[in-house]
């Protein structure tokens, strides 16, 4: 089962404790065979995107973020965390619904 189908069928997946991701940073998770990068924004909210940079395969979870974008650590391409759109002419990345439920990170609607 791929993540997108699980997300579209309103499944909810608990990724782990919110405390696992320090504010302003990202961590990778493998969900249903796919690797996704989850970011804990400094405004408290969460974002989840595909973990691999479509440019040259960089680890997006190691990238720096603000409340809008993630910057890949390898070549500094940037993507909008809400839409997945590139700000530097690269293909878009997938975006997944994610939220905090109490102390937990919950993937899915």
């Amino acid at each position: 089962m791929t993540l997108s189908t699980s997300a579209s069928s309103n499944t909810r997946t608990v990724l782990g404790p919110l405390a696992d991701i320090p504010p302003g940073e990202g961590r990778s998770y493998v969900v249903g065979g796919e690797t996704i990068a989850v970011f804990h924004l400094r405004d408290g909210s969460l974002r989840a995107v595909s973990a691999v940079c479509p440019h040259k395969g960089g680890p997006l979870a190691d990238g720096q973020i603000d409340n809008r974008v993630v910057v890949c650590p390898l070549h500094l391409n940037a993507w909008d965390l809400a839409t997945g759109c590139s700000q530097s002419g690269q293909p878009p990345i997938d975006v997944y619904p994610v939220r905090a439920d109490g102390d937990l990170i919950v993937l899915g609607d």
């Binding site: 089962m1 993540l3 699980s6 499944t11 997946t13 990724l15 782990g16 998770y29 249903g32």
Partner: peptide, 9 residues
């Protein structure tokens, strides 16, 4: 191996 999160339907 990353933290493997079981997917529950």
């Amino acid at each position: 191996v990353l933290p493997q999160v079981p997917v529950r339907s």
